[in-house]
């Protein structure tokens, strides 16, 4: 069942098109990624879904509700972590959770969240004294305190060091494990690749691809190559390799062989060679990353 349905969303500011007809849907229980460079329109799209912005045209349904018309009812059931939000410096961790819990009709017990998110020791610490990672944990806890069906997490790990980012990823996995559908906005490839079930790639206000991370990496490939060295005196393996599904070309230069293909051909080629007792050495597979996929899709790098 689709929890979020977005259809043909458009938005422009002062004649500049920010969203040019964005459509996607998010299924119950998945982690849905919205990936794109800064300024691509990711946040605007998500803010239309959250009801913070009114799209110029298009429809949005979240849990069957219209984010603008049924704002009150919807806000009981979603949890949001906004990009670049702070709390008052002097607000203590427990006070923030206690306060935000009071906004909802059926909140979670914030004391549980305090334990779950490793904030129990920081209970009486003021917001201004927390580390970046601790603040981020508090924001996730605040997004979950209303016991939401859907959580929106926007640029969760921007500004965190690599270790804190990894730790935050584990937290997102826990959110999903607890059954909350998650929409994750990010401009980090590795993050989306690690966490998301499906990804919408947004570039210049349009969805340029929508697939699983693995699907995106495989999509439009053909560029994938594997290389290996044949044992001395081995027969030409071209016929053997060509029979493997997905292989598009084989080239040989001395005892060095290059095989080009799509999908999961590399594993199949290795298996085929092994079955015929061709023991290759120096095997290299040029695996495409989501980064390569992004360049292939948009013609530019993600952090441009």
């Amino acid at each position: 069942m689709a929890i979020i349905e977005v259809h043909d969303l458009t938005k422009s500011y002062a004649g500049r098109t920010v969203l040019g007809g964005v459509s996607f849907s998010v299924e119950e229980g998945e982690v849905f990624g919205i990936l794109g460079p800064n300024g691509a329109g990711k946040t605007t799209a998500v803010e239309c879904v959250e009801g913070l912005r009114r799209p110029d045209s298009g429809t949005v349904k979240v849990l069957g509700l219209d984010p603008r018309r049924d704002a009150r009812a919807l806000r009981e059931r979603i949890g949001v972590q906004l990009q670049q939000t702070q709390l008052p410096e002097n607000l203590k961790v427990w006070e923030a959770l206690d306060l935000y819990a009071s906004f909802y009709k059926a909140p979670r017990d914030w004391r549980e969240l305090l334990d779950e998110w490793g904030l129990a020791e920081k209970r009486d610490t003021r917001f201004g004294k927390l580390s970046g990672g601790q603040k981020q944990r508090l924001f996730i806890a605040l997004a979950l305190v209303g016991d939401p069906k859907v959580a929106f997490l926007d640029e969760l790990t921007t500004g965190l060091d690599p270790q804190a980012r990894r730790a935050t990823w584990e937290l997102v996995k826990r959110v999903q494990a607890s059954g909350v559908t998650t929409v994750l906005v990010s401009h980090f490839m590795d993050e989306v690749e690690e966490l998301c079930d499906r990804v919408a790639v947004i570039d210049r206000g349009e969805v340029v691809a929508l697939d699983t991370p693995a699907g995106l990496i495989g999509e439009g490939a053909g560029a994938q190559q594997m290389r290996f060295t044949l044992p001395a005196g081995a027969a030409d393996p071209a016929a053997l390799v060509a029979a493997v599904p997905g292989v598009t070309a084989t080239a040989r230069e001395g005892d060095r062989v290059t095989v080009t293909g799509t999908g999961d051909f590399a594993t199949a080629v290795t298996a085929q060679l092994a079955r015929h007792h061709v023991l290759v050495s120096d095997l290299r597979i040029d695996r495409r990353s989501l980064e390569d996929a992004f360049i292939a899709l948009t013609g530019r790098k993600l952090d441009d």
């Binding site: 913070l52 949001v80 008052p88």
Partner: peptide
């Protein structure tokens, strides 16, 4: 600090 905006995502 975005506190007013953050509040507008709650009931």
């Amino acid at each position: 600090r975005g506190i007013l905006r953050r509040l507008s995502t709650t009931p």
